[in-house]
Simulated scan of single mutants.
Amino acid sequence: MNEEKTLLEFETYLFGLNTNKEGILKIPTEHYELTNQRLKITKQGVLTETKSDIELFKIKDINVTQKLKDKVMDVGDIEIISADESKPKLVLKRIKNPHEVREKIRSAVIAAREAAGVTYRYDL
C-alpha cells in the first residue's frame, strides 16, 4: 500500500484573521488536510476539537457555491457528495480559492480511485 502524503492544507477563511493555534483562547476554525488517501477535517472550537476524515475513493461529486460578495473575496463553499454512510454530504465553508481547491481534490480523488481499483457505473 502507498504511503500517505499530504497534497494540500487549507482552512476556513475568516475575513483575513489568522487563527491562534498556540494561545489559550482559540478562534473557532476548520482545518483541512488533503492527502493522497483521504481528506482530514479538524474542527477547532473555543473549548472542543473534533477530528474526522473521508476516504477519497468514496467521493462521488464536488460542487462549488459562491455568492456575489464571496466572488469579490474569492471564497466559496465546497460541497462534497460521497458514498460515506456517516456523512454523505459534507460542506467545506468559506474556502479561499475554492475552484482551485476543488480541482486539487478532484485530481486526488481520481488518483485514489485508480490506486484502489474502484470504479463507478453510471446509468445513462
Rank of each mutant, 00 (worst) to 15 (best):
A108I: 10
Y13S: 05
I110G: 00
I80G: 06
D77W: 10
K87M: 08
I54L: 15
I41N: 05
R102M: 14
S82I: 09
L17W: 13
G16Y: 10
K71L: 05
H31L: 07
E30K: 11
E55I: 10
I81V: 14
K43Y: 06
I95C: 09
R121W: 04
M1C: 03
E33R: 13
L68W: 13
I80A: 12
Q44F: 02
G16D: 05
L68G: 00
S86G: 04
K89T: 15
T48L: 01
F15I: 01
E33N: 00
F10S: 08
Y32E: 01
L124A: 14
L90S: 06
D70Y: 00
L90K: 12
T29G: 03
F10Y: 12
K87D: 13
E11S: 14
L47M: 11
A108V: 08
E85R: 11
K5H: 08
Y32V: 04
V118Q: 11
T50A: 14
L90R: 14
A115P: 02
Y122G: 09
Y122K: 12
E3R: 13
E85C: 02
L56S: 07
I81L: 15
L39P: 03
I110D: 09
T12Q: 14
E22L: 15
E79K: 15
K51V: 06
R38K: 14
D74L: 03
K26F: 04
G117I: 07
V101Q: 02
E4A: 09
V101W: 00
S107K: 15
V46P: 03
D61F: 01
Y13G: 00
T19F: 11
Q37L: 00
Q44A: 03
T50M: 01
Y32R: 06
L34W: 07
Y120E: 15
E79Y: 03
L92A: 01
E3I: 09
T42V: 08
I54H: 14
D61Y: 09
V91T: 15
K21Q: 07
D74H: 02
P28V: 06
F15L: 12
Q37T: 04
Q44M: 07
L34Y: 11
I27M: 13
N2L: 09
D84T: 01
S52Y: 01
K96V: 05
K93S: 11
